[in-house]
């Protein structure tokens, strides 16, 4: 090393701000960390944390009933209304219920599908199916929801197929069933991909070892493959659950009377009543639900997969 160093031509020491700052960074590692992380941290604080703080703060304000301008006096009234009125409790339960149903449906469909992709399909078929899974994400959300309206119409494609098979027609458009169906369809790719990623990491030797030890394929699936897929399922469920929890468009398009979700109430209070404080108070409910949910999913290892 020393011999090499002498052979290197030694230029004049660099001067200037860059040089000085690099010297500072070398001497004080703390300053280095601030310099490197400061900008992104500031952006994070300003964009994400500030928005959440603004949300929380404004949820304690109220709105002047005459001019509908925000009045900056602190009170718990918004939360009291939320707590006292059974309508809001019902809407929260409905939202969580549909989000749970959609998540379970997506797991039931996505797990065997991802398993097929990883273990059964050949390389070309796998690429083809993966592309087919992702393609709907390139299409506008609205187009996909409206296409379900065409499918579910009493005179739509689904009834045409059902009656063609001699089965009774359905009439579920503008009900909660339609919302469940639409959400399950729209969020499915968000479940398939994490499960696929998790299953892909399961080494083939594990399955061989399981078979060598005498396990039937179902036992291997249940005791080896599925437990290893749980982090992927948990990660996918965060997507499907939170996306359903925050949506407010599908209820208006395919939902019926009695299909309001949390998002709709938030939207109508911001966009219609201009009652931002109340909307902010209600918006903290899905936030709290998601914090609890993510804490549970963390336990299940959802973040080991990211």
């Amino acid at each position: 090393m020393a011999a090499d160093a002498t052979s290197l031509p030694e230029g004049p020491p660099r001067k200037g701000a860059l040089r000085a700052s690099s010297a500072v960074a070398w001497r004080w590692p703390g300053a280095k960390a601030v310099g490197q992380l400061g900008l992104p941290l500031a952006a994070f604080l300003l964009v994400y944390v500030a928005a959440l703080v603004a949300l929380l703060v404004s949820s304690f304000w109220s709105v002047d009933e005459f001019t509908s301008e925000v009045v900056h006096t602190w009170s718990l009234d918004n939360y009291r209304i939320l707590w006292d009125d059974p309508t809001y409790r019902r809407i929260v339960l409905r939202t969580v219920g549909i989000a749970t149903a959609v998540t379970l449906t997506c797991i039931v469909i996505a797990f065997p599908y991802a398993l097929f992709l990883v273990r059964v399909a050949g390389p070309r078929l796998r690429v083809l199916l993966l592309v087919a899974t992702v393609i709907p994400l390139w299409v506008s959300y609205l187009v996909r929801v409206y296409s379900w309206r065409l499918i579910l119409n009493p005179e739509g494609a689904l009834n045409w197929a059902l009656t063609g098979l001699g089965l009774p027609g359905q009439n579920i458009l503008y009900t909660n069933w339609a919302m469940w169906l639409v959400y399950s369809y729209i969020w499915l790719p968000f479940m398939v991909l994490p499960i696929y990623a998790a299953l892909e990491r399961v080494p083939g030797s594990y399955l061989e070892a399981s078979a060598d030890l005498g396990a039937k394929s179902l036992t291997t699936l249940r005791r080896v493959v599925f437990p290893l897929a749980i982090p992927g399922i948990a990660a996918g469920s965060i997507f499907t659950f939170s996306l359903t929890l925050g949506d407010y468009i599908a209820p208006g398009l395919v939902g019926g009377p009695g299909s309001q979700l949390i998002g709709n109430v938030v939207f109508s209070n911001v966009g219609i009543a201009n009652n931002v404080p109340f909307a902010a108070a209600f918006a903290t409910v899905p936030l709290a639900i998601m914090i609890v949910y993510i804490a549970i999913m963390r336990r299940l290892g959802a973040f080991e997969n990211l």
Partner: peptide, 15 residues
């Protein structure tokens, strides 16, 4: 009843 009450009542009507 002011309009803000109308909006809240409408949420309850829709259920």
């Amino acid at each position: 009843m002011p309009y803000s009450k109308w909006v809240q009542a409408w949420t309850q009507v829709k259920g």
